[in-house]
Amino acid sequence: GTEDLKEEAKKALKKGDKERAKRALKKAGLSEDQIKKFIKEVL
């Protein structure tokens, strides 16, 4: 589900894998702006 994808994105970001995080967030249905915001909040 969406929460799982967001968790996956957080883990990817902590490993420095932004591309993987972006893919997971796109799958979760987030827009580009939401993805940028999510990444900023996590990092």
Rank of each mutant, 00 (worst) to 15 (best):
G1Q: 12
G1R: 12
G1N: 13
G1L: 14
G1W: 14
T2K: 10
T2L: 14
E3V: 10
E3F: 08
E3N: 10
D4R: 13
L5A: 08
L5Y: 11
L5K: 03
L5F: 10
K6G: 03
K6T: 07
K6E: 08
K6W: 15
E7I: 08
E7S: 08
E7C: 06
E8R: 06
E8K: 06
E8V: 10
E8S: 06
A9L: 04
K10Q: 06
K10R: 15
K11I: 13
K11M: 12
K11G: 06
A12C: 07
A12I: 04
A12T: 02
A12V: 03
A12G: 02
A12N: 04
A12S: 06
L13P: 00
L13I: 10
L13E: 00
K14C: 10
K14S: 09
K14N: 08
K14T: 07
K15W: 09
K15V: 14
G16T: 02
G16S: 03
D17Y: 07
D17W: 08
D17E: 07
K18D: 08
K18F: 15
E19K: 07
E19C: 08
R20E: 11
R20F: 11
R20W: 13
R20T: 13
A21Q: 00
A21T: 02
K22Y: 15
K22M: 15
K22A: 11
K22Q: 11
R23S: 11
A24V: 13
A24P: 00
A24R: 03
A24Y: 15
A24F: 15
A24K: 05
L25F: 02
L25C: 01
L25K: 00
L25D: 00
L25G: 00
L25T: 00
K26N: 06
K26Q: 13
K26A: 11
K27V: 06
K27P: 00
K27G: 05
A28N: 02
A28D: 02
A28T: 03
A28W: 04
G29S: 02
G29P: 00
G29N: 04
L30E: 01
L30N: 01
L30F: 13
S31M: 04
S31P: 04
S31R: 05
E32W: 10
E32R: 08
D33W: 09
D33V: 08
D33A: 12
D33P: 06
Q34C: 05
Q34M: 07
I35C: 03
I35E: 01
K36H: 12
K36E: 15
K36F: 10
K36I: 14
K37L: 12
K37E: 15
K37D: 14
K37R: 11
F38N: 01
F38P: 00
F38W: 08
I39M: 09
I39R: 01
K40G: 09
K40L: 14
K40M: 14
E41G: 08
E41K: 10
E41W: 11
V42A: 10
V42S: 07
V42D: 03
V42Q: 09
L43T: 06
L43M: 11
